[in-house]
Simulated assay, not measured.
Amino acid sequence: MYRARVIGWSRAVPCRGDRGEGSAQCEFLAYQRESVVAIVAGLDDAALRTAVLPSGWTPLGLIEHLGDAERHWLQDVFAGARPGGPDASGFAFYREQCRISDGIIAGATLDTAPVGRHHDEPLASQTTDLRRILLHLIEETARHAGHLDAARELLDGRTGLGPR
């Protein structure tokens, strides 16, 4: 089974009672999470806070955005909770949000409908159960991994970072 090394996950956390599709989704999510952190591993603080993409995102800003995405999709939308502000920032914030997300995922089935709702269409209508929320979170994490790949190459020329 896939082992996440960079940010401390020892396994992908499958949905309750699932050994197929949910396990695969959780494995891919864990892989994408590891990838985003591996891509920026070794950058100093100045590089992490340097915007090199036309969008203005910094590598650290993207990591924090991914923490916000984990919190929004699994705590706010899926669980219907309204979490307060973060107690941490940067990598610690991202790691904590992923840990909380894993607990939520482990306690649900893929067919479970969200308690809350995303505020914008058409995404609100597309995320009607945990399955679709996980697919969106995998997609969003992978998209930003690509942004981080480009940023890393522009910062120090390194490419091909991450577990694969």
Rank of each mutant, 00 (worst) to 15 (best):
R3K: 10
A4V: 02
S10I: 02
R11W: 01
A12N: 04
P14Y: 10
R16I: 04
G17C: 10
G17R: 04
D18R: 12
D18N: 12
D18T: 08
E21D: 04
S23T: 05
A24Q: 10
A24F: 14
Q25R: 07
Q25M: 13
C26S: 15
E27H: 03
F28V: 12
L29R: 09
L29A: 11
L29Q: 05
Y31C: 11
S35M: 14
V37M: 07
V40S: 01
A46I: 12
T50G: 08
T50A: 05
A51W: 03
L53A: 11
L53H: 06
P54W: 13
G56W: 08
W57H: 15
G61F: 08
G61I: 10
L62E: 01
I63F: 05
E64H: 07
H65T: 06
H65I: 10
L66E: 00
L66T: 00
G67E: 01
R71V: 01
H72Y: 14
W73T: 04
R82P: 00
G85S: 09
S89C: 07
G90D: 02
F91N: 00
F93M: 15
Y94S: 01
Q97A: 09
C98H: 06
C98G: 12
S101P: 02
S101A: 15
D102F: 06
G103M: 04
G103V: 06
G107N: 02
A113I: 05
R117G: 11
H119K: 14
D120K: 10
L123V: 12
S125C: 09
Q126I: 00
T127L: 11
D129A: 04
L130K: 07
R131V: 01
I133S: 06
L135I: 08
A142V: 07
R143D: 02
G146I: 13
G146K: 13
H147P: 00
H147V: 03
H147T: 04
A150M: 15
R152K: 11
E153N: 15
D156M: 11
D156F: 09
R158T: 14
R158N: 03
G162D: 07
P163W: 14
R164C: 08
